[in-house]
Design a protein around this nucleic acid. Structure first.
Lengths: 196, 196
DNA sequence: CGGATGACAGATATTGAAATCTGTCATCCG
DNA sequence: CGGATGACAGATTTCAATATCTGTCATCCG
């Protein structure tokens, strides 16, 4: 027994350990139970299915990124500067996750492919933050209010246009030389497109 | 025997037939030879390896798209209008390929994952066309010449920013309701970003 | 009594032997 | 003589038997 009570949080911790060690294909519920020193039946008391467990651990992982960015979205100050910082922050966060522990990143990339609802919520969260920055920018008069739809629609467009720099499908390209310049070029193009 | 001389072109035709029928995983060189009524040794006289045959058939398929767009890139006339038409043409071409024959599209999506050189050439070709339009726009004075790098760099940024609408990885989303509006929003944002 | 257990059935994954495919080349044919 | 052939070796894939895993639940324990 590693500790006292068997909580969802402890199970998620153990699940991430097991995923890191064995990868998404080999990690089993029995492995998670073994790490915790309990039977696998006990894990099923807290998560109805293996899929539910994977969703929960994936959500936890995605939330670590969105929480970091939330503070930028909620800042006061120049919307244009915050937008640049937010987009750069998103790219940097993903790039570091991918570069620092490639195997765990690959593992979560597989998981996000299965857990569509969780990923959709994450994307809604991020585009919501973007929409807030865009709305602030329109209020401040630095971003155009004509011709580009609602803040939410514009946020979705900005998110789409930067997909190459946050979608795990492109992770292999983030460490190539020139990736940073490519990102800066797209960011400049987008910011220019938003200006009043 | 289907016809007289065994030419590379006839082999590619047969290869596409076989790929359409069996998919990328099951299609064999022996199958291609059978369709042509020759031994598989004869196919190897024209293509050194199976990989080379796949590259050639993939290039042929990609070229059908770039050739359509080349005429827009080489038009004379308003660069802004041509850019919109070119981007829309690219999205439409990919969307129709994916929608009209989903299995063949899936097949070629797998092939493009293996044949990186061919895909890189295709992308160079497309960004070259884009660069030409952007250069024309700068000459005409409708696109800004400051702050966004060379036409080639700007073309790469525009291509990156529209990845969601031409990269096969996103094909599943092209038929969703709202995809067209999403594309229009990104296109408007980009065109706005390029304006003088 | 609330929570943990482990035996179990059906689903999924692994494994290794057999079948098929790729790529070569000595031989053949017009 | 130029081009096609098919037998062949080594690489890859298929398939079926075997092993492991998921999810349930009657039972047990503090």
């Amino acid at each position: 027994m590693v500790s006292d009570a068997l909580t969802p949080e402890r199970i998620l911790e153990a699940t991430e350990d097991v995923l890191r060690r064995y990868g998404p294909a080999k990690a089993t519920v029995v492995d998670v139970a073994r790490v915790l020193g309990v039977s696998h039946g006990s894990v099923y008391r807290h998560f109805r299915t293996k899929a539910a467990l994977r969703e929960a651990v994936t959500q936890r992982w995605l939330n670590r990124t969105s929480e970091k960015l939330a503070s930028i979205a909620e800042d006061s100050g120049s919307a244009e500067e915050r937008l640049g910082r937010w987009l750069t922050g998103l790219f940097e966060a993903k790039r570091h996750k991918a570069g620092d522990d490639p195997e765990l990143f690959a593992t979560y990339s597989v998981l996000t492919g299965d857990t569509n609802t969780v990923v959709d919520r994450h994307i809604d969260d991020l585009t919501g933050q973007l929409a807030r920055i865009i709305e602030d920018g329109r209020t401040q008069g630095v971003f155009s209010s004509d011709s580009l739809g609602s803040p939410a629609e514009t946020a979705a467009a900005v998110f789409s246009a930067t997909a190459r720099f946050h979608d795990p499908a492109y992770a292999a390209e983030w460490s190539k030389p020139g990736a940073e310049q490519d990102f800066a070029a797209v960011r400049a193009l987008i910011v220019r497109g938003l200006r009043a």
